[in-house]
Design a protein around this nucleic acid. Sequence first.
DNA 1: CGTGTCATGTAATCAGTTACATGATTCA
DNA 2: TGAATCATGTAACTGATTACATGACACG
Lengths: 190, 190
Amino acid sequence: MPLMKNSKTTYALLGWLSTGPMSGYDLKRLTDRYIGQFWAGSFGQIYPLLHDMLDVGWVTMHEERTGSNPAKKVYTITETGRREFVAWFSTPVEPDVARSELLLRIFFGSFAPPENLIECLEGLLKDSRAKLALYESMREEFPKQYAHLPNLPYIMITLDRGFVVHQGFVEWAERALKTLKNIASNDHPQ
Amino acid sequence: MPLMKNSKTTYALLGWLSTGPMSGYDLKRLTDRYIGQFWAGSFGQIYPLLHDMLDVGWVTMHEERTGSNPAKKVYTITETGRREFVAWFSTPVEPDVARSELLLRIFFGSFAPPENLIECLEGLLKDSRAKLALYESMREEFPKQYAHLPNLPYIMITLDRGFVVHQGFVEWAERALKTLKNIASNDHPQ
DNA sequence: CGTGTCATGTAATCAGTTACATGATTCA
DNA sequence: TGAATCATGTAACTGATTACATGACACG
């Protein structure tokens, strides 16, 4: 029996397929839309992974010809696939590896004009504030809009994470900007 | 003139070399120790990058034979290197791409026993609490210990980021655990 | 005498993105 | 008519990690 590649994106796909059969195109759309904030998946990754999962027996496939071309290929999770998916939850989690060009710049910030960092930070702060507002409104709307979903509590936890992440960023960026603006005004007195 | 590879790690190296000449080994040690929380650099990446930077004229190199073998290769940043480094600060920042296996599991958490997620979260919460305490103590100690450093304010901003990140994680994880434990107790009444 | 640190490097591998190719359908 | 969306796929590339090879020196 062939082995699966070591990509966690496999489990994102199995997760979606646990909710019902769908195509690679559908999987890409759902991934971008609902888990894009913490998980990415390109077509160049999804299509080959689906082929591998088929080889390994975690999914089955049937074509749906709706007159259009190419035929839509609909994937269905198998019992083996379900078992593999559930087994994943009891393996060790990979801790999030954060790579931050912003922090890299700030750490070595004394070698460049502070204005550059201020501009960077203000841009990101604006974005983060917008996302914070978005998460806030989703936290309010989702319980009403998706009250029927049995997995709503799980979705709410991931939304709450987005909220806290951006809240923390905004809080920090405001403090950082204060420091940097102070440095900048001392660099150019008057 | 040959072109440099498109790796931001180059700028981490230029940053360190802006503080004085040093070897690839030194660069690796400093990177791991002081910016490892937000930037990684392996030997397999650092040594080739140093060769490229030499080809391109951003650094010069001289060997230091201290009797030991292999000879220590000490790299010095050039004027061109300094200019390139400073220019980097006025290019657009790449936003941090977060990939979180933890959030992926939680999003699809309804398909697995909640106990698995609880165990995961409790482990990560413990780690994060420890790091939070570490950042708290560094925030207190650094201003005393490194008062003479001209770039102390910049370092403090990066420390503050570590503090806020883990503070946010702890806050969120505690709320998430409450929800999950609630689900778990409803799954197995009595 | 063996483990750990200092010190440099290369080759293989890997996950993932980007760019490209194809072509039907839908809608302004 | 031409852009946007639906739909599948492959090849090339890239940034990065891992594993390996080599060897001296210091410390207990």
